[in-house]
């Protein structure tokens, strides 16, 4: 039994056939080849699959795909506008906030979710904002600095 799932992905409509138990992570990675959300644990622990659903950060691995029907899903593939890097992307790059890079997409989405709601967060709020995203390389300090730089307006157009 397959269901048709229709939703908006990074501003464009998509339709795909899914099983009831397919997670949003399965849908994005395996069906649509949108691979920025990473499969790190399938358990909601690591945060590497964090995406935005209607602007809210969620774990793609904990979200049953069919529940996003009709909603807007944003991933790192949709961060760039007109070919230009998003300020967070530039800041992460220039602050060495990615080492192996596997946690980076989830970190970027968590950071975007935070700044969209709270453009001038305190350091503590930034730490809280990425508290669900693990980085085994230990780039937390650089990630926080990159987000602080964006919040301080250093990466405006």
């Amino acid at each position: 039994m397959k269901y048709v799932l229709s939703f908006n992905l990074n501003g464009l409509p998509v339709d795909t056939l899914v099983k009831a138990t397919d997670t949003l992570l399965d849908v994005l990675r395996e069906k649509l080849n949108v691979v920025s959300p990473k499969r790190g644990c399938d358990n909601g622990d690591c945060g590497a699959c964090t995406v935005l659903v209607n602007g809210e950060p969620v774990r793609a691995c904990l979200t049953i795909g069919l529940t996003v029907a009709g909603k807007n899903v944003q991933t790192v593939e949709g961060l760039q506008q007109d070919g230009k890097l998003h300020p967070l992307q530039r800041a992460f790059h220039e602050h060495y906030a990615a080492q192996c890079g596997f946690c980076t997409p989830g970190m970027l989405i968590a950071a975007k979710a935070l700044l969209d709601k709270n453009p001038k967060p305190t350091r503590e709020q930034i730490v809280e904002g990425i508290s669900g995203n693990l980085c085994r390389c230990g780039t937390y300090v650089e990630v926080v600095e990159a987000i602080q730089a964006v919040a301080a307006g250093k990466y405006k157009e």
């Binding site: 990675r29 395996e30 080849n33 691979v35 920025s36 990473k38 499969r39 991933t75 790192v76 593939e77 961060l79 760039q80 890097l85 967070l88 992307q89 530039r90 992460f92 790059h93 220039e94 060495y96 990615a98 890079g101 596997f102 980076t104 997409p105 970027l108």
Partner: peptide, 21 residues
Amino acid sequence: VLRYDGIGHVTARTRYVDDIQ
């Protein structure tokens, strides 16, 4: 010196093995 793979990481163009289909 900026990382040669940094842009790949922040744009998620870096292809890890599980990304290959």
